[in-house]
Nucleic acid binder design. Structure first.
Length: 423
RNA sequence: GGAGAGGUGGCCGAGUGGUCGAAGGCGCACGCCUGGAAAGCGUGUAUGCGUCAAAAGCGCAUCAUGGGUUCGAAUCCCAUUCUCUCCGCCA
């Protein structure tokens, strides 16, 4: 949620910057400004009314205690009409606040000045690529066939027991999963992250806090009986730790990491995008979350980018880094780097990580603040990224490392898998 | 799942209808004292919104959350939620 004062200060500029996201904000902004003015006026009137009522109530108390009940009763008459007025104003104010919030929630985050313009993923800007290239034999298999050949992932069994998008991993496949999770967590700890093991379900407040609600219900499962949401990413519990929190200055910066299962309904997905491991309803991911001083967030973003790149280097995977263009940038993000690994057998790039700076957009909604140098509270900046999501990493590892003698495990992982080849 | 007790400021804790945003203590900050420190003494110490160019000041709201009763609610009533204790069940 954008901060009102940013909009108030320079609505023109906000509107212009949102054009980079191809978002037409003009009418929304003027509605917001109107509502805000209205809110202020109403609040003033209401406060004045309440102040008067408070004054009268005090007076009545004094009159009673000094035995002047008649005078007190007279004053009571006066309060009746006053009360009616404040009740109306108060109800009105609530309405205004609700509409104001509703409008504010529709405004996306302002993109960083360096975000390239563009409409779709085709306009994303490639900012880095490593020099690993994979040449496969003509007979190379995509990972869903390798899964069957080596009996390491069973999609059919998952369909039988649960449904599409819920595979079983077995044998070396299951061990590879465990190895990757431990590898990613250990690397994060080495890099100074604090490990959490979060709840896999969150309540409604948390789902709102990180912006999954309202209106992204299509992405999340919902357990209606207890009104809980299985997390689509560990970002949700990991960031909501700090909902409604004022951090002391020595608590920043915060670097947290968590492994979790992630649950996504993925309503509306289809075709080759969902084949095999490419898109699942349940998958594993290690997520990193940073909370930092506003002046540091872009430095931190670069640190995160380098960190994620180092993981892919260690896994010896071909990858590229894209800076997302305005049109492809998410609603909440100010700047996002996507990491894609090249899947040689599918001959396409697969997104394995997305690292974003949300600036104060999330923290404004969550009221995540810290006490600044002057003792005043300020909104902190939040960032997060995958480090990494497993399924597509597994897909790329299986496909790119297939050979006549089996699937080779990169050296960095062998200590975790306990084997150097799936044969 | 059943029964009971409870949720007050950063923490502990008093407060059962009026002058209570809230005693007292701890902690923290600043000052005095000291060669320095401790102790002691003094002062200050919530958040949001509004007013204001800004600060101070002032006003409003907030004692788990939401509603109600009342001229007036931390205090009474209802609902929700969370915590604790006992019983039951259980990995």
């Amino acid at each position: 949620m954008l901060q009102l004062n940013i909009i108030n200060e320079d609505p023109q500029k906000v509107e212009e910057l949102l054009w980079i996201k191809n978002f037409e904000a003009g009418s929304l902004i003027s509605e917001i400004l109107d509502l805000d003015n209205c809110r202020r006026e109403t609040q003033k009137k209401l406060d004045d009314g309440l102040a008067e009522a408070n004054r009268l109530a005090k007076e009545i108390g004094i009159l009673y205690s000094s035995g002047r009940g008649d005078e007190a009763n007279e004053l009571k008459q006066k309060t009746a009409s006053l009360k009616k007025g404040t009740q109306t104003l108060s109800a009105g104010l609530e309405q205004i606040k609700l509409s104001l919030e509703e409008k504010l929630l529709q405004l996306p985050n302002i993109p960083h000045p360096s975000v390239p313009p563009g409409k779709s993923e085709a306009d994303n800007e490639q900012v880095a690529m490593n020099d690993i290239r994979v040449e496969l034999d003509p007979g190379a298999l995509p990972h869903w066939d390798l899964a069957v050949k080596y009996d390491i992932i069973d999609f059919d069994l998952g369909s039988k027991v649960t449904g599409a998008g819920f595979p079983f991993y077995k044998n070396h496949g299951a061990r590879l999963q465990r190895a990757l999770i431990n590898f990613f967590l250990d690397e994060a700890i080495k890099a100074g992250y604090t490990e959490y093991q979060p709840p896999l379900f969150v309540n409604e407040d948390s789902a709102y806090g990180t912006g999954q609600l309202p209106d992204k219900e299509g992405q999340m499962y919902h357990i209606t009986e207890d009104n809980l949401y299985p997390i689509p990413t560990a970002e949700v519990p990991l960031t909501n730790i700090y909902r409604d929190v004022i951090l002391a200055k020595d608590q920043l910066p915060i670097k947290n990491v968590a492994y979790s299962n992630c649950f996504r309904r993925e309503a509306g997905s289809y075709g080759k995008d969902v084949r095999g491991l490419n898109r699942l309803h349940q998958f594993d991911k290690v997520e990193i979350v940073h909370i930092c001083h506003p002046e540091r967030s872009y430095t931190v973003l670069e640190e995160m980018r380098n960190y994620v790149a180092s993981l892919l280097e260690k896994l010896e995977l071909p990858y590229r880094i894209l800076k997302l263009c305005g049109g492809d940038l998410s609603f909440t993000s100010a700047l996002t780097y996507d990491f894609e690994v090249y899947s040689a057998a599918q001959q396409r790039w697969l997104e394995v990580s997305s690292v974003s700076n949300f600036e104060a957009f999330q923290s404004n909604r969550m009221k995540l603040r810290f006490r600044g140098e002057d003792g005043k509270t300020r909104l902190a900046h939040t960032l997060n990224g995958s480090a990494l999501a497993l399924p597509r990493v597994v897909a790329a590892l299986l496909e790119n490392n297939q050979s006549g003698t089996g699937i080779l495990i990169p050296a960095a992982l062998q200590g975790y898998t306990g084997f150097d080849k799936i044969a």
